[in-house]
Amino acid sequence: MGEKEKDKSRRKFLLDFGALGMGSLVASSLLTESCSKIGPGPGKKVTLLNSKNELVEVDSLYISTLNKNLSPNHNSEGRKGLPGKKFVLVVDLGKCKNARKCMDKCASVHQLRPDQHHLNVLLMQDSEHTAPYYMPKHCQHCDNPPCVKVCPVDATFKRSDGIVLIDNERCIGCRFCIAACPYTARSFNWYEPKDAEKYKDVPYNIELNVPQKKGTVTKCTFSADCLREGKLPYCVSACPNEVYYFGNVYEDAVTNGTTGETVSLSGLLAKNSAYRLMEDLGTAPSVYYLPPKDRALIPEKDNENNSDDIKRKS
């Protein structure tokens, strides 16, 4: 009985798949046909397959070709990585003043609830007698990523350009990766994501993690969608305080997101004695920190955040 049902569903899948393939074939042939004819007469109807998988009739006058990549192709492309690049982020802790523009921008593009973070600015104090400082913490995009090793369904993966991404359509929500990550960089969609209604019909983009799916894990993507277009990540270009440098390791150059100044990566790291988080774990992160020297703002021990917390509790 069970065997039969399985067989049925497989057959159905094959059927659907075939229909879809045929549909797109027909549509593409129609599309190319309609495009090759320049200036077709009015009133001529053309049948097209839209992104919702419906066949629609459109007057040929209204058809214009798009140069945009459609997202389904994009997603298989999204697993590969950009050739000749390996991305690196440098965070200058001395510059961070907790403006939180990076977090706001990140949450707005990645459809995150207030309690979810791809990127979090933390108030750090290493020991009792040292001064506190603010530390933006992203996914470290490790070269030896513990999260990728534990994924049982190949949902999270490391691309050739060093970015660790997650495919929300493959993720089964086991949260092994959350447990494996030493940097607590991942968060889980326990509830319906923010603006779920608004993003209902948006095709899934693996490089943006949008639309988010309840019951799956979400993480920092290094704004892989921006990088594909040659732009700096959202957080880097939103920072008003010159905190972030971003660039390509192979090219040995990083660009500051605020001033647009481009400097040599090796020079920057050497001059400021940069370090990486939890080096002893051997995760080999792609995020470097410049020590919080000459701070632009020394946070007080009872700063706004702390007092906010206290306020909420009382």
Binding site: K85, L232, T255
Partner: peptide, 11 residues
């Protein structure tokens, strides 16, 4: 004078 890099111009 600048050199063209991936994300900006290096002086």
């Amino acid at each position: 004078f600048y050199l063209k890099r991936d994300f900006g111009l290096m002086r």
